[in-house]
Design a protein around this nucleic acid. Sequence first.
DNA 1: TAACTATGAGACAGACCTGTCTCATCACTC
DNA 2: GAGTGATGAGACAGGTCTGTCTCATAGTTA
Lengths: 193, 193
Amino acid sequence: MTPSPVSDKRQHVVETAYVLFKRAGFHATGIDRIIAEADVAKMTMYRHFPSKDELIVEVLDYRAMRFDRQLDRLAQEGIPPEQKIGRIFDWHARWFRSADFHGCLFAHALAEFGDPGHPVFKAVVRQKNGLKRRMRSILEEVMPRGRAESVAATLLMLIEGATLLAQMGQADAAIRDARKAAMGIVAASRRPQ
Amino acid sequence: MTPSPVSDKRQHVVETAYVLFKRAGFHATGIDRIIAEADVAKMTMYRHFPSKDELIVEVLDYRAMRFDRQLDRLAQEGIPPEQKIGRIFDWHARWFRSADFHGCLFAHALAEFGDPGHPVFKAVVRQKNGLKRRMRSILEEVMPRGRAESVAATLLMLIEGATLLAQMGQADAAIRDARKAAMGIVAASRRPQ
DNA sequence: TAACTATGAGACAGACCTGTCTCATCACTC
DNA sequence: GAGTGATGAGACAGGTCTGTCTCATAGTTA
């Protein structure tokens, strides 16, 4: 069997690193631990990723891509914006309840890499702005652009806050309250039909 | 001069560690760096704090106390709850604009110490619940207890989300949108006078 | 068969980590 | 002057960190 042109070892390292970073954090997870868990030689890892930082960026970008694809699948044409936004909150409710939930990897990355010039920081900003943009374009169906931007930012804050509360063990109340607040805000800003 | 009964070296270490943790994170800040910056012998530190983890908890508790005292000073009897809540958001607006703002140290601690049994994790939960309780007791003046709990949680989520967006360089828009949403939610839940 | 590529295995360097230990010093008290 | 308690200075242990290096091996391709 010819291995796939872009090696599957590479992807395996990314996915293993993701699990470990999620559980223990970035600085606390050593390269040795990653290669042991992935059952891969150290040089194999360093041939694919020139440094740990670049591996971290790769892991974040990979997760951002998976996240986007999942939300893409939820998006269904022809349903009202309220329902589209509601599905995004429902997705988070399911995430909070999942077995291996440990909070938001991107928020955690921001905590450990606070320098705005750092590639990891930039990867986080990309992901968060992506989610905001997604919600904004949904909202633009029923409100002017500037208003949609504001409401999208508010919804993003509710989601981020809910994720933090969920990590502190208040998942159910958090997503319920956040969802309710979000629906109220969207309704209040909606252009009357 | 007799040194104060509870040594001032101890407090000096706490404050130095706070600045370093805030800038670089917890794992990335070594003991050697802390004692160098505080200009203190290593044994002096370890005589006061049995381990780095306990120093971290001390730093967090110290910051939580300072935070509480600052919000206490803002609380003025006789003004309506809306205004009391508004002042909390204003406090955050000023914080976001301050020179050395690097996001929320407690949220960062949660990112690096995700084990719910860890003393650092518990210190974070204490602080966040404290802020929620503060807002809840303000809201109970004008709405029933259960409603106040829900609204307080929502305001907390807005604040946490705004802090995260502020760290990503969107401080002004974030606090403006969060404040506006908060005021709307409180108004909608207010028991009519 | 020969060449090429990806990988495995692990030694190694050099730095950094937390935490312990000893010994000297200094200020204050009795 | 003797004793006491807090501190300074730094060596030290034992471990872990990232990243580099060499050499062997296996599988595919020409």
